[in-house]
Design a binder for these strands. Structure first.
Length: 191
DNA sequence: TTCGTGATAGAG
DNA sequence: TCTATCACGAAG
């Protein structure tokens, strides 16, 4: 299997397009690889759920970094969240919510302290724990290093869009994307 | 369904 | 300083 790294130009487009197209792509992180099955898009402007709405640090991050940079933050006192910076005509982030484990599964099980493969990466906090992603990767360029990058994967997946999860503001947009029928998503798609 | 967790930001 | 809020997860 030959993995082609997704380069910076990919992230110079609309965050919603990027979030959708990243479904089926591979997340490569050291010895671990997963197929991305769930993402969400957040927009710098007119999106109250985006960090840029209330956090100056998020706005500064966009200002100072190039598309493809990792935006990682700590949430609820326990979990790291992995996002990638997107700068097209509209700027924003893509949050990675779930992947299907492909390689490094034993390592993921050890880090997660569970055996069930479906629960290894089925949530944004679980995913970062399984892949050992923390703030030490914050600001990292994810378009260069073959051990910390995205790669083109399964481009035949069918993608479903529905509402984002776990937010209270601007919750009506259908900016969550999942692979249709995947058993590795964090929460079942609403019917 | 509930509850712990700690960073962040806004109010006082 | 105090408090509300939160892009969550695990236990029950």
């Amino acid at each position: 299997m030959k993995n082609r790294i997704i380069r910076a130009n990919f992230f110079r487009r609309d965050p919603i397009i990027c979030a959708r197209e990243l479904i089926g792509a591979h997340l490569i992180w050291g010895k671990c690889v997963g197929k991305i099955v769930e993402t969400e898009a957040y927009l710098e402007h007119d999106d109250e759920a985006c960090h840029t709405f209330s956090r100056a640090s998020a706005r500064a991050f966009i200002e100072r970094h190039k598309p493809g940079a990792a935006y990682i933050y700590f949430s609820y006192g326990a979990h790291w969240m992995l996002n990638v910076l997107v700068k097209g005509k509209t700027n924003g982030f893509v949050l990675f919510r779930a992947v299907e484990p492909l390689r490094g599964i034993e390592l993921m099980k050890k880090r997660r302290k569970i055996d069930d493969e479906r629960g290894l990466c089925s949530g944004p906090g679980k995913l970062t724990q399984a892949f050992d992603i923390t703030n030490r990767h914050h600001e990292m360029n994810l378009c260069m290093d073959p051990l910390h990058c995205f790669a083109y994967g399964d481009d035949t997946v069918r993608v479903v869009a529905d509402e984002r999860i776990g937010i209270s503001r601007s919750a009506h947009h259908a900016w969550r994307f999942t692979e249709r029928g995947s058993k590795f998503v964090s929460r079942r798609v609403k019917l």
